[in-house]
């Protein structure tokens, strides 16, 4: 019998065993459980910087403390992910009033500034955080599975090719081509404007990564058959047949019937 075994009935043994058990279980959980996809935590300075930027650029519509006015909604609870999406795609600050904010032609703020404002908004109330990079690039994702998820959840608004689609009263679901994987993830998470929320319990981070992999694979495949005509389906194809097709062939028929020189 060694020294440890001799002390097995010591009163502290139970306490130590419990402690060991907790450490092992906690460690195993931390290592093995699905991680909530969260990027680095914000610091207090970032929050302060974000608040300053917010006051200058966003408060007119969203209120001094981001609690909303009659022209801009309350941002408490939308999370840093929403800020990263809206500002990172140039939608915010909104250039002019309208039914919805279109994707901006250029992003007006640097990454650090956006992160700062995101930290400020996140400090108001808990909300979705900027996702971890491992789930936002599509790398390692299964495009086949992603496609199945896309066709069930997304193509009815955004169209099978991600070319966009109409909603009621002038609203629309925008094009998905040329969008960073991170922003797609954030849009799913935060449900911007008319878009519903697809939280991580509905579509898990791995599934979101599959989705992004699918969209990237689609973009890479391009349009093998020729001009895609906006990927809008039979309507532009019919237009080409009538205008271009009939036009050229009637032109040929006219040439055929004209007297030779």
């Amino acid at each position: 019998m060694n020294a440890l075994a001799a002390r097995r009935r010591h009163p502290a043994a139970i306490f130590l065993l419990l402690l060991l058990g907790l450490i092992l279980t906690g460690g195993a959980y931390a290592a093995l459980a699905p991680k909530p996809a969260i990027a680095a935590e914000a610091s207090a300075e970032q929050v302060k910087e974000g608040q300053e930027l917010f006051k200058t650029n966003c408060a007119t519509c969203h209120g001094a403390n981001a609690l909303g006015t009659n022209v801009g909604p309350n941002l408490a609870g939308v999370g840093a992910a929403a800020v990263d999406f809206q500002m990172g795609t140039g939608r915010m600050p909104m250039a002019e009033p309208g039914v919805q904010a279109p994707r901006g032609k250029e992003v007006q703020f640097s990454e650090e500034q956006i992160a700062a404002i995101g930290a400020f908004v996140a400090s108001l109330a808990p909300g979705p955080a900027v996702p971890a990079e491992e789930y936002t690039t599509g790398a390692g994702g299964d495009p086949g599975k992603g496609g199945e998820i896309f066709r069930t959840n997304c193509s009815m608004c955004h169209n099978s090719a991600g070319a966009g689609g109409a909603l009621t009263r002038g609203k629309y679901a925008p094009k998905l081509t040329g969008v960073e994987g991170k922003h797609i993830y954030e849009a799913l998470l935060t449900g911007p404007q008319s878009m519903p929320v697809f939280n991580d319990d509905n579509i898990s981070p791995e599934s979101k990564n599959d989705l992004i992999a699918y969209l990237k694979a689609m973009e890479e495949e391009g349009n093998p058959g020729g001009m895609a005509l906006g990927s809008l389906g039979p309507v532009p194809e019919g237009l080409v047949a009538w205008v271009f097709g009939l036009g050229v062939l009637v032109g040929a028929a006219y040439w055929l019937g004209q007297k030779g020189a």
Partner: peptide, 19 residues
């Protein structure tokens, strides 16, 4: 057709086939 389009803000469901 499947009525998939849920407009979160207006709480309307839109069918893409014939609106």
């Amino acid at each position: 057709c499947p009525v998939g389009l849920y407009e979160r803000t207006t709480h309307h469901l839109l069918c893409p086939c014939h609106q």
